[in-house]
Amino acid sequence: MAEFSWDVRSPLDRALAVGRYGGHGDAGVALTEIRNFDLIQVMARRGKAAEMAKAAEGRFGVAAPETPKVVQTADATLIWSGPDQFLVRSKGDKHGMAALAPLLAGSASLSDQSHARVLVSVSGAKARTMLAKLSSIDLHPGVFAVGAAAATSMDHTSVTLWRGNDRADGQAVFNVLVFATFAESLWHTMQDSAAEYGVAIGHSEEF
């Protein structure tokens, strides 16, 4: 019988080369892949949206988002992904499948997406300018504030986009969640879009 050795690695393992590229001076854009997170898709079963909302609030202590936005708790991010559905992002199996299924399985369908998506954080002084080449969403601070989210497309690829908490230096952080199999393609596009401003490439396990 064949022996298999499973090696957990990022779908961007080949494409992502840590370093500083492109235009001179300070890097205008930082592209950081966030690795090793738990991600559960929660979708209400027909007619059970209210029941799901109640169960979710019981679990997280706050209401899950019902409009395009994210809700931060102490150890989870609840991300709107469509009508009557949201994603739960956490770390260290705190809100993984085993934890959520007993509470939500009656009212919602759950699907583990932890290894099915890639998360890229985009920040820096030129982050908005760079994202404007790829997105038709208005990212002006007055429109897309901290906590805003959108199910949208970038470069013909479906993504979940949201604005996280600002960086320590006050700059905005945009999170792009993309299907693993499309991640390398979108990564190259984002890298190319950022190159003219100077881009710092890295990865992190920071929650």
Partner: peptide, 11 residues
């Protein structure tokens, strides 16, 4: 409008 029975569980 949302189409009947599509997308949204409450519609």
């Amino acid at each position: 409008e949302p189409a009947a029975g599509a997308g949204a569980a409450k519609v």
